[in-house]
Simulated assay, not measured.
Amino acid sequence: MVTVEDVRRLALTLPRTTEHLIRDRVKFRVGQIVYVAFSRDETTMGFAFPKEERAALIEAEPTKFHPPRPSDERYNWVCVWLAAIDEDEMTELVVEAWRMVVPKRVAAAHLDGLIGKA
């Protein structure tokens, strides 16, 4: 099972990411834009995701993904139960969420640097 600590280890390596505790919820953001946030009990992770693709993702894997609370449905956001994903899938979700909120050149430079190290 993925934990907040697993996500923290990854998220804090992504350029411009900062961690915040807001109303007892851990959140990772770039500037003022949150791209990953946890439920208070740390069983669910919300993450940036194109809202036009959200319904298809949830429909494809309803035991893993679920919609955000109604007040957040207007945002590019979806939620996942941490117990339903492994570290590889968490990495993909977090990195893709981060890519949605950073300038394209920042994402490209960071990801090119990772590919160059492989």
Rank of each mutant, 00 (worst) to 15 (best):
H20G: 01
A60S: 15
E42V: 05
P15E: 01
R40D: 14
T63N: 02
A56K: 15
D86G: 15
R16H: 12
V78P: 12
D41G: 03
V95Y: 09
V106A: 00
T91L: 11
W77A: 08
V106C: 00
S71N: 13
D86R: 08
A37H: 08
V36F: 05
R74I: 13
F38V: 07
K117W: 00
R40S: 14
Q32G: 11
P50H: 10
E59V: 05
P103V: 11
R16T: 07
V101W: 01
I115M: 09
E19Q: 14
L93G: 08
M45N: 01
E19N: 12
F49P: 09
H20A: 12
K104S: 11
L111E: 14
L10G: 05
V101L: 06
M45V: 03
E87M: 10
R25L: 10
R74G: 10
N76L: 13
V30L: 02
V78Q: 06
P70E: 12
E53Q: 15
L114G: 08
F28S: 08
R29K: 13
G31M: 08
W98A: 04
R74F: 09
W81S: 05
L10Y: 06
T17D: 04
S71D: 12
K51D: 05
V78H: 01
K64S: 10
L82Q: 05
L12P: 02
Y75W: 12
P70N: 10
P62Q: 07
G46F: 10
E59M: 04
V94H: 09
E59P: 03
D72R: 07
D24Q: 06
D41L: 03
T13E: 14
D88N: 11
P68S: 14
R25E: 15
L111H: 03
H66K: 12
A97H: 10
T18E: 09
A60P: 11
Q32C: 07
R40G: 08
C79T: 03
L21V: 09
W77K: 07
A11Y: 00
F47K: 13
D112F: 00
A55P: 13
A83H: 15
M45H: 11
V26D: 07
I33K: 03
V94E: 06
P70I: 04
S39V: 05
L111N: 11
V78F: 09
E42K: 12
R99H: 11
P68K: 06
T18D: 08
I115P: 02
R25V: 10
A83R: 15
A55C: 02
F49V: 04
T44C: 02
P15L: 01
A118F: 04
T44A: 05
S39A: 12
A48E: 05
E87D: 11
A109Y: 00
R54T: 10
V80L: 02
E73Q: 05
L111F: 12
R29I: 04
R54F: 05
R105G: 06
E96W: 01
V94W: 12
D86I: 07
R23K: 07
I115W: 07
K27T: 14
S39I: 01
A109K: 04
